[in-house]
């Protein structure tokens, strides 16, 4: 029998990763060409940097403590979460059910260590709870559970669903006459699911101008690089074609992150997407841009090493 199938490349071999040239922060910065920056209070930036560092430390620690979890995606989203929860979003940790609060959905639910650390630091629940992550009886499930965790707006884990849930919330706001904003953080592997684009198409059609999507473009998924598995390139054009406003940033630079959020929250006719070029595992050298750390807990030594690096990393 003749077999005629397109050759697909996969990238699993760890050695291959080691040989791959790490994308430096600088190269990424050049790719994103930000428009001229606004003035942000340097103290705000400094404080957000400190918070992001705490988020990273707590994330790695809770995953190590649980013996399982997803460090790579938690570290790549940390700066965005810090900006959202400590600067951008209108929320009240003491009243998580406040009707007019801004909503945040983590579509890439596996990266919930980062979200839990953020919520704890923001005061939604005591920080000690982080030690119970993934344990029987915990409010902190292996993937987000909106009925168990204060501050979690939508259950997640099965990929591709966050944007659709956000569309529902944005439509709900419109129908009920509310002005809250809906932020959805999606992953690039997450965006390979078709329903992400069904949601994007509807949001564009419905002109959901209070819906803001942040695209965590770390170009990495479980089996390796997105470009080698199913490429998402060109990303910007896809969103433009779905009738969204698009902005590209380097997702670890607070000036660019805050600029982008100011931009996204301006009055507009369309939903807005921030394509954040990020580094999976950002902040821990041996995890950076290494798919092997997508869903693996560090052992004791690795944890110590990671914590040391994170503590030293002075922004």
């Amino acid at each position: 029998m003749k077999i005629f199938i397109h050759r697909t490349r996969i990238c699993l071999d760890k050695r291959l990763y080691c040989a791959t040239i790490k994308l430096s922060d600088k190269r990424l910065r050049n790719r994103t060409s930000p428009p001229k920056s606004m003035k942000h209070n340097p103290e705000t930036i400094l404080s957000l940097q400190r918070i992001a560092k705490r988020i990273r430390i707590e994330s790695v620690r809770m995953i190590a403590n649980a013996g399982s979890g997803h460090p790579g995606g938690s570290l790549s989203e940390a700066d965005i979460l810090a900006a959202l929860y400590f600067h951008v979003m209108r929320i009240d940790p003491k009243n998580p059910a406040w009707e007019d609060r801004d909503r945040f959905i983590l579509s890439k639910g596996h990266a919930c260590a980062g979200l839990y650390a953020t919520l704890a630091l923001r005061g939604f629940f005591p920080i000690e709870q982080l030690a119970t992550f993934r344990c029987c009886g915990s409010i902190l499930q292996g993937h987000p559970d909106m009925k168990k965790t204060p501050g979690v707006e939508m259950t997640a884990g099965p990929l591709g669903n966050g944007l659709g849930a956000g569309v529902g919330m944005a439509l709900g706001a419109r129908i009920t006459g509310k002005t809250f904003r809906v932020f959805v953080l999606i992953g690039d592997g997450d965006a390979q699911e078709g329903c992400t684009w069904e949601a994007a198409m509807l949001a564009g059609h419905q002109k959901l101008n209070h819906l803001i999507c942040i695209y965590d473009y770390n170009r990495s998924q479980v089996d390796g690089r997105t470009d080698e598995i199913v490429s998402l390139h060109p990303v910007e054009e896809k969103w433009l074609a779905m009738n969204w406003d698009v902005r590209k940033i380097y997702g670890h630079d607070f000036t660019q992150i805050l600029d982008a959020f100011v931009w996204s929250c301006q009055p507009r006719q369309k939903p807005a997407v921030i394509i954040a070029y990020t580094i999976k595992g950002k902040g821990v050298s041996f995890m950076e841009d290494n798919a092997a750390w997508h869903g693996k807990a560090p052992n004791k030594e690795q944890l110590e090493w990671a914590l040391k690096e994170l503590a030293e990393e002075e922004n």
Binding site: R9, G189, I229
Partner: peptide, 10 residues
């Protein structure tokens, strides 16, 4: 490799 296809998260 030519009898393996990775569909991505889909």
């Amino acid at each position: 490799p030519n009898r393996h296809i990775n569909f991505g998260v889909a």
